[in-house]
Design a protein around this nucleic acid. Sequence first.
DNA 1: AGAATATGTCAAGTCTGCTTTGCATAATTT
DNA 2: AAATTATGCAAAGCAGACTTGACATATTCT
Lengths: 68, 68
Amino acid sequence: MRTEIPRLRREAKLSQEELAQAVGVTRQTITSIETGKYTASLPLAWRIARHFGLTIEEVFDFSDLEDE
Amino acid sequence: MRTEIPRLRREAKLSQEELAQAVGVTRQTITSIETGKYTASLPLAWRIARHFGLTIEEVFDFSDLEDE
DNA sequence: AGAATATGTCAAGTCTGCTTTGCATAATTT
DNA sequence: AAATTATGCAAAGCAGACTTGACATATTCT
């Protein structure tokens, strides 16, 4: 799933490590989410969005689920 | 995690079975989420919110994650 | 009351989110 | 150029999301 996390991190000048600590996960978890290896859980998605002062929908791209 | 799903379902006169089919999971999954047995995944949370025309934040209650 | 529909629950299994450790390469700093 | 910091990737393991199947009780319909 595509996300705005890399852009938001760059704009805030945060490393993966710093964001990871801020939201309570490991750096590898952030890497995996950014590279699309897997999708964040709901609580983690919320913590990340909140860390940037945004809603989940503003950070994560759900367009690949649009139909079905 | 608390959710507005039971209320939304009642207002829309939908059974757990009907909502489950609409969002592509089993009835037990809806039951488990409503009774707090576990938390929905991010994609499922989005499909449920979308089914009611709402945002994820309007359907799921994140107040138990407020700090940390 | 009896039948049908709706909800809760339990067990076992699969799959995915996340961790830990560790290594390789890229980018930045000194 | 050398050292430090940042990112990507891989394997093994644990926990949680979700499935299937089956049963029990509750609620609604006739």
